[in-house]
Amino acid sequence: MRDFDGWAKDGAEALDFIACTGTFEGRDPRERPRLIILDLEMPRPARFSVLQKLKEDKRTQSVPVVVMTASDRGGDVDECYRLGANAYVIKPIGFTELAEVIARVSRFWLLANQVPQ
C-alpha cells in the first residue's frame, strides 16, 4: 500500500481536512481518502461529532469510516453504527494484537473493499 493516509491529530483538524479549511486550505475536495480510521477519544470536539459530520457531508459520506477506539461500551458501538460508521474496532492493549488487528483492517478495507468514485 503505497500512499499513506493522512493523520489528523484531533477532531477539529479532521473537520478542516474534509472542508478544506484551516491547515488544509487549498486541498482539492475531490480527492477523497479510501478509508477513514476514527478514534473516539480525541480532544476537540466532542466524541461523535466528527463521525456525524463525516456522514452528513455529501463530500465524505461515501468514504468508509472504521471507528477504532479503546471504548468497548455497547452504547458507543450502537451510537456509531446509528450515525453511519461502516465498522467498529476495539483497540487491543497488546502491541502484537494491535498490529494483527491493523493488518486485518488494512487487508479488508484497502485490498478487498471497493469504494464509490
Binding site: 468497548d72 465498522a87 467498529y88 476495539i90 488487528v101 486485518r104 487487508r107 479488508f108 478495507w109
Partner: peptide, 10 residues
C-alpha cells in the same frame, strides 16, 4: 478475518 474476528457488531 475482519468481519468475524475484528469487527464489533451492535
Amino acid at each position: 478475518m475482519f468481519w468475524l474476528f475484528v469487527n464489533s457488531t451492535p
